[in-house]
Amino acid sequence: MIQLNDLQFTYAQSGFQLAIEALEVAVGEKVAVVGPSGSGKTTLLNLISGICVPDRGSVQVAGRQVEAMSDATRRSFRVQTIGSIFQQFELVEYLTVRDNILLPYWINRSLVLDHAVRERVSELAASTGIEDKLHRRVTRLSQGEQQRVAICRALLTRPHLILADEPTGNLDPRNKKRILQLLFDQCAEGEITLVAVTHDVNILDGFDRTIDFEQFRIEENGGGA
């Protein structure tokens, strides 16, 4: 699913540099990326999703060279192929749960919002246990419920890959387990590859593989991730 080769990326402002000789993630694999703060974990996710473009090397996702795409193509590729989950949930406060889940369809013209998509929103909400909260504003939900909404949003476009940046970082231990299990179940169901960045070593059990960022060559002149 993911192939990184001879990758190098430098933040122009801070001078932080990330270099990865080779990294591969298979289809359906669940990979946890661990490492200390500022080691470049989030930068790795940004490179995979095409938010950042490497200075050198190649990023291949689902058989396509991400760095070679135009900005518009990268955006369409990102919204169609990758689902993103964030530590702070990153939900839009003025939208209801349903509209937040539908957000990728609101903001990208390459996706067509039809009846089937609306049906899928209800299905996802039911499978994540928030079906009775679809018309509520997200600000009225608990943190666990908000992360469920974020997971639904990431899964709506039937992505091949989910990139999760500290998906349980803002949750209490009980919710942490539940959300992680939910994420694993959904990924298993849809044969979705999962790359999750975390610095929480207690949640690594469910992953197929753990990549320790210490193994990569990192020249740190400032903050990175």
């Binding site: 955006r75 990102r78 839009v92 990728p104």
Partner: peptide, 15 residues
């Protein structure tokens, strides 16, 4: 923050 989230999801600057 909202704009950054939208951008990360796949929203263009024009949108």
């Amino acid at each position: 923050g909202e704009m950054e989230t939208m951008f990360k999801i796949g929203c263009g600057r024009g949108t």
